[in-house]
Design a protein around this nucleic acid. Sequence first.
DNA 1: CTGTTAGCGCTTTCAA
DNA 2: TTGAAAGCGCTAACAG
Lengths: 353, 353
Amino acid sequence: MSIHDVSRKAGVSPATVSRVFNFPDKVSGRTRERVEAVAREMGYQPHSVARTLRTQRSQVLGVVLPTLLNPVFAECLQGIALAATAGGYSIIPVTTDYRLDLEARAVSLLLARGVDGLILVVADPQASLALQRLAEAGVPYVLAYNRHARHPCVSVDGQAAVADVVRRLIELGHRRITMVSGPLAASDRALQRHRGYARAMAKAGLEPTLLEVPFLGSATDGLRDTLTGRARPTALLCANDLLAIRSIRAARLCGLDVPGDLSVTGFDGMALGEELTPALSTVMQPNAEIGRGSVELLAQALASGSTPGAAASIVLPTTFRTGESCAAAPRLVRGVARRARATVPRPPPRSRS
Amino acid sequence: MSIHDVSRKAGVSPATVSRVFNFPDKVSGRTRERVEAVAREMGYQPHSVARTLRTQRSQVLGVVLPTLLNPVFAECLQGIALAATAGGYSIIPVTTDYRLDLEARAVSLLLARGVDGLILVVADPQASLALQRLAEAGVPYVLAYNRHARHPCVSVDGQAAVADVVRRLIELGHRRITMVSGPLAASDRALQRHRGYARAMAKAGLEPTLLEVPFLGSATDGLRDTLTGRARPTALLCANDLLAIRSIRAARLCGLDVPGDLSVTGFDGMALGEELTPALSTVMQPNAEIGRGSVELLAQALASGSTPGAAASIVLPTTFRTGESCAAAPRLVRGVARRARATVPRPPPRSRS
DNA sequence: CTGTTAGCGCTTTCAA
DNA sequence: TTGAAAGCGCTAACAG
């Protein structure tokens, strides 16, 4: 059923029906009411595809992100979805699984779909060809999580946040603080977080140690060596919450108590972290807010017929969430952590069910 | 840049260009190559909105689900996204936050967007008006997770799976097994899982106990009473993984060791469950598979110009994942669990960072 | 094998 | 305040 059917039944022209839906003020009260009544009765809804073709605006935003399997991005997407709906937009999400080729493919797919704008979380803005073409094509877009001087970004200051964590750990008496990170080359976030770690450690006169674990597979293998070594760290600063959770497990499996023997901090603030035992001490990013902010930046530009500029970038604040996974450093004896007799940890029992 | 520009530059008609993209076989090799070359050179991509208007097929699937904050649905959506992309479809996800009014709104939004079909996770197929109207309107759709005799569903047998868990717990020596569930009225899944529990308990001659915790807020309040009572359960059978994680935390806060003093099982098989300590013992649902299956069922029907029928419903198998959160029941002394001296649990220390 | 023609359903000048 | 007409970019008959 089309606008035509409504117009016939209401005894007006299609143009008038269109006006009723788009510019109600431009129609006389009487005809508007009649048209509205007829439309409601027939259950008419304007066909958005036709409208899109005519107006060249789809009211759809494309969203490019690495994966939904990391709750951080799921939370962000939820924020995007909410704000988009509120602003009259729908979203088409596409995941890239951290692969650059899929990033490019995602962008062209979305452009062919006629999205009005894009929100994307790319591996590295510097290296993204898709992004560059996007910018050149003049298509409105906003980066989320990424930070770059020449792109509009909604992000947090990961470097400062990690530096803050380092200071907190030092204050708790930690000296041997190892950073656990995914591949640094994989994203600008990883790089920035590591920089925050490296600088804060240097500033404190401490020696930085980086444990770079592979993306997939048993991240715990490398951890085992680190945690069972003679001069093992007293604190693990993990580049994200997922890594922190894995690290805590690895520590337990090595017979270490968290935070008794080893403090562990995360980064991201995924909601689940608070439900764990020990609750994750972590840097809270406002994930939903990042999504919301991205949508708003984009929607604002779209409304004014422009394109978001790098100058509009927003840096949202992070907060350190004090959980239970991090505590004062254990006392040291000749460089080796000594554990109180009472807290000798048992490895978690294997289920027999 | 439109098909027209390409046709001019290639010296052919727009129709021919269209054929090159849609029915390459219907075009002579020479002209096809020329057109392809020109198109590539100009960076032309068919405008899918126009194509949609003309063909009345959008190649877009709408996805209605409760929330992305529960990793179960995020995992499922990822599965949907993957399969959709593979099948040449894009998806528009809408979340309902378990609210029926938003369910209806989501459906009409999606229909107005001109989606070719819908995949939805509704609270209860029986009670969903949106669903009923969908069926009546003849719009192709598939339900995921839901089970209903008169709708096409991709689901698991939650009732049988929970009954199986009950049997496992009984075999481990548990007699006081409490089910922890969200509001039963909230979804058909909750109801079915509870039925599996109730029946299996009855069959074993054990008394069922249900702890229904509210959706939001401190689910742990009710748990505390249960766990500190005189005849506290030795096992908690949780209706989903999120609840299991919360229950484990509540138990720890009550000074109970999991699984030493209390076994806890989940349901869903969210990936993170394996990373926890103790690793979650849970019923694994193939979440991504459920998503994939839904897409395939839908795509198949769309390809044949039909609508998926209830007869096409698929029930995917679940498997019990043996984790560490569940073990043999502690020995009982006069109906009260006795704990070995050595395993007296300490409440987790509060972080001072 | 290729071109011509007629819309898909809507919005938007331009006239009345 | 309303209507007539043109056309967004594409595809599908139908001719040739």
